[in-house]
Design a protein around this nucleic acid. Structure first.
Length: 285
DNA sequence: GGACAGGTGCGGT
DNA sequence: ACCGCACCTGTC
């Protein structure tokens, strides 16, 4: 895939490695909207407008921060290579998933935003998570004119349990209060320097962070692709295509052993695939 | 109404 | 270590 960076835009040639719907709808990111045939993506205090031109096989990203979004969309990584390597496993359902969601990419998101987004995600669905984050940004984030920035730590730590409850966090309000308290001493940035095993251990010390959320933060925030977040959907997939196993920790470990540093990519293709199949099934009924 | 959702912490073994 | 259970809240 080739791209050209200009003052206020990035032009991407080759949609086989960049499909904005596949990128945004695979569950890794929550702040985006679709207006007038264009996608708008928000990251921390920045925004980008993405428009695809299928007939010309190109996409145009308009933004005041092209450098930031080249990194955010990980445009210097070849997904053609990743897909080739994943296909070497000769798993039909994985190959089908890759063919269906060919233009998917794992975003390099801000660690703080990822952390708190996935702290909300426990026992929760994407739509609800998006609404909570929207309200959270409006309440605690900086007003940027056309949108609200994701809250900063200093802003969020002024929040009370009642305020978080009012935003619809439910029992996760407690996760926020306690985790923000812990975070006054340990910063997320410092964890970057540790081994992946220790990062996971440290992440799980925060209240409300279990293995699944930790794996998501590792994959989407620290870009450690040797992570395979296992939720109900991956569990279903594993039981259907691999073997019967109900312990999600075991499933995750087995899949990381199989896919190595391609785990995160395999997870995204498979997750999207199994969820799409499931929602098609429920529409038929 | 009641079951369920993209998990986690807690209290039992 | 390994289970089973309760849990806010919106949606079907």
């Amino acid at each position: 895939m080739r791209y050209i960076k200009e003052d206020n835009k990035i032009i991407i040639y080759g949609l086989e490695e960049f499909n904005i719907e596949h990128i945004l709808l695979c569950g890794q990111v929550f702040r985006f909207t679709f207006i007038d045939n264009k996608w708008i993506v928000y990251s921390v205090d920045k925004m980008a407008v993405i428009e695809e031109f299928k007939e010309e096989n190109k996409a145009v990203i308009t933004t005041e921060n092209p450098d930031y979004f080249v990194d955010y969309f990980d445009l210097n990584t070849s997904y053609t290579l990743i897909k080739e390597n994943l296909k070497k496993f000769n798993l039909k359902f994985l190959n089908d998933a890759i063919d269906s969601f060919y233009g998917l990419r794992i975003l390099k998101q801000d660690i703080f935003e990822v952390f708190f987004s996935f702290l909300i995600s426990s026992n929760n669905n994407i739509k609800k998570i998006q609404k909570i984050i929207e309200r959270l940004s409006k309440k605690f984030g900086e007003n940027k004119g056309s949108f609200y920035a994701f809250p900063t730590f200093n802003s969020l730590r002024t929040g009370t349990q009642q305020q978080f409850l009012d935003l619809g966090l439910g029992y996760r309000a407690d996760y926020f209060v306690k985790t923000l308290k812990i975070m006054e001493k340990n910063s997320l940035q410092n964890l970057r320097l540790l081994s992946s095993q220790n990062i996971k251990k440290e992440l799980m010390k925060y209240y409300g962070v279990g293995e699944k959320v930790a794996d998501c933060v590792m994959l989407f925030g620290y870009n450690l692709s040797q992570s395979f977040p296992c939720d109900v959907w991956i569990e279903k997939m594993y039981n259907e295509y691999f073997e019967k196993e109900t312990n999600r920790s075991v499933i995750s470990k087995n899949l990381v052993n199989l896919f190595g540093n391609l785990s995160g990519y395999a997870q995204q293709y498979l997750f999207f695939h199994i969820r799409t199949i499931q929602s098609q099934k429920s529409k038929q009924i």
